[in-house]
Simulated assay, not measured.
Amino acid sequence: MTTVDSAMATTEHHLPSALRRGGWAAWAVFLTAFAILEGVNHGAGSWLALVGGLIAPDLTFFAAAGAHEPVRQGQLPRKAVPFYNTAHRTWIPFALAVAYSVSPLQVPALFTFLLAWMLHIAIDRVAGYTLRTKEGFIRG
């Protein structure tokens, strides 16, 4: 198999963009409803955790503070990319939420934070923001 054939073989199995975004949108609706339910059931701490979880993943932009690297529009400074990509991987808050669910912990705000973190990622994916290349651009 040539390099071109290899590249075509890996892209043929990807879901169409509209289908992927639709799946992310459905996940976002579910997470929104679940997070609101947690806020209603557990009060102010959960509402604050919801806001915090929606904001927290983008705080990774501060990892580039002090970097004097010129960036183009839509580019994230290279110094922030590993932090951004780590905070925008769905499996991390999902695994933590599963671990929380099977643990004896009783901290509803923590669970709500994890739901909001996943919601942030889902909203980003629906909007077309995926993980970044090492140069800081959105992966295509």
Results as ranks from 00 to 15, higher is better:
residue 35 A to E: 00
residue 47 W to L: 10
residue 109 A to N: 06
residue 96 L to S: 12
residue 7 A to W: 05
residue 99 A to S: 05
residue 51 V to M: 13
residue 52 G to H: 09
residue 57 P to Y: 07
residue 20 R to Y: 02
residue 94 F to R: 03
residue 43 G to V: 09
residue 75 Q to K: 09
residue 17 S to Q: 12
residue 99 A to H: 01
residue 30 F to I: 09
residue 3 T to I: 13
residue 15 L to N: 09
residue 39 G to T: 03
residue 133 T to W: 03
residue 12 E to V: 08
residue 111 F to G: 04
residue 72 R to S: 13
residue 115 L to H: 01
residue 128 G to F: 08
residue 121 I to A: 03
residue 107 V to I: 10
residue 137 F to K: 11
residue 23 G to K: 06
residue 134 K to L: 15
residue 93 P to M: 14
residue 65 A to K: 09
residue 15 L to D: 07
residue 64 A to Y: 01
residue 78 R to P: 12
residue 138 I to F: 07
residue 115 L to G: 00
residue 22 G to V: 10
residue 119 L to W: 05
residue 54 L to V: 04
residue 21 R to D: 01
residue 99 A to Q: 01
residue 42 H to K: 08
residue 135 E to V: 13
residue 45 G to L: 12
residue 124 D to S: 10
residue 109 A to T: 03
residue 140 G to T: 07
residue 72 R to I: 12
residue 135 E to H: 13
residue 130 T to V: 14
residue 65 A to R: 08
residue 38 E to D: 02
residue 85 N to L: 12
residue 54 L to Y: 03
residue 14 H to Q: 08
residue 90 T to C: 10
residue 31 L to S: 01
residue 100 Y to V: 09
residue 113 F to Q: 00
residue 79 K to G: 09
residue 80 A to R: 02
residue 29 V to P: 04
residue 2 T to M: 06
residue 135 E to N: 14
residue 9 A to L: 08
residue 70 P to D: 04
residue 84 Y to I: 11
residue 18 A to Q: 09
residue 57 P to A: 14
residue 28 A to I: 04
residue 65 A to I: 06
residue 52 G to F: 15
residue 73 Q to K: 15
residue 122 A to D: 05
residue 134 K to F: 14
residue 12 E to S: 10
residue 29 V to T: 02
residue 73 Q to S: 14
residue 36 I to F: 13
residue 117 W to G: 02
residue 61 F to K: 00
residue 134 K to M: 14
residue 28 A to L: 12
residue 25 A to C: 12
residue 116 A to V: 07
residue 101 S to P: 13
residue 36 I to Q: 03
residue 104 P to F: 15
residue 122 A to Q: 04
residue 133 T to F: 06
residue 57 P to H: 05
residue 54 L to C: 10
residue 38 E to R: 10
residue 104 P to E: 09
residue 87 A to Y: 00
residue 6 S to E: 08
residue 3 T to F: 09
residue 17 S to P: 13
residue 59 L to H: 02
residue 121 I to R: 02
residue 47 W to E: 01
residue 118 M to S: 12
residue 81 V to T: 03
residue 7 A to H: 07
residue 95 A to M: 15
residue 24 W to C: 00
residue 93 P to W: 12
residue 88 H to Y: 05
residue 29 V to C: 12
residue 15 L to F: 13
residue 22 G to E: 04
residue 127 A to D: 06
residue 84 Y to K: 11
residue 71 V to S: 00
residue 103 S to E: 03
residue 66 G to V: 10
residue 41 N to S: 15
residue 108 P to S: 03
residue 16 P to L: 14
residue 89 R to D: 00
residue 99 A to Y: 01
residue 7 A to C: 11
residue 106 Q to P: 05
residue 10 T to L: 15
residue 117 W to R: 04
residue 131 L to N: 01
residue 117 W to C: 07
residue 105 L to M: 10
residue 112 T to V: 15
residue 115 L to S: 04
residue 140 G to F: 06
residue 57 P to D: 05
residue 85 N to H: 06
residue 119 L to G: 09
residue 54 L to R: 02
residue 69 E to V: 08
residue 138 I to G: 06
residue 25 A to G: 06
residue 137 F to H: 09
residue 29 V to G: 05
residue 31 L to C: 02
residue 127 A to C: 13
residue 98 V to M: 15
residue 96 L to A: 14
residue 72 R to P: 10
residue 126 V to P: 05
residue 121 I to C: 03
residue 80 A to W: 03
residue 11 T to M: 11
residue 25 A to S: 03
residue 127 A to L: 15
residue 72 R to N: 07
residue 71 V to Y: 01
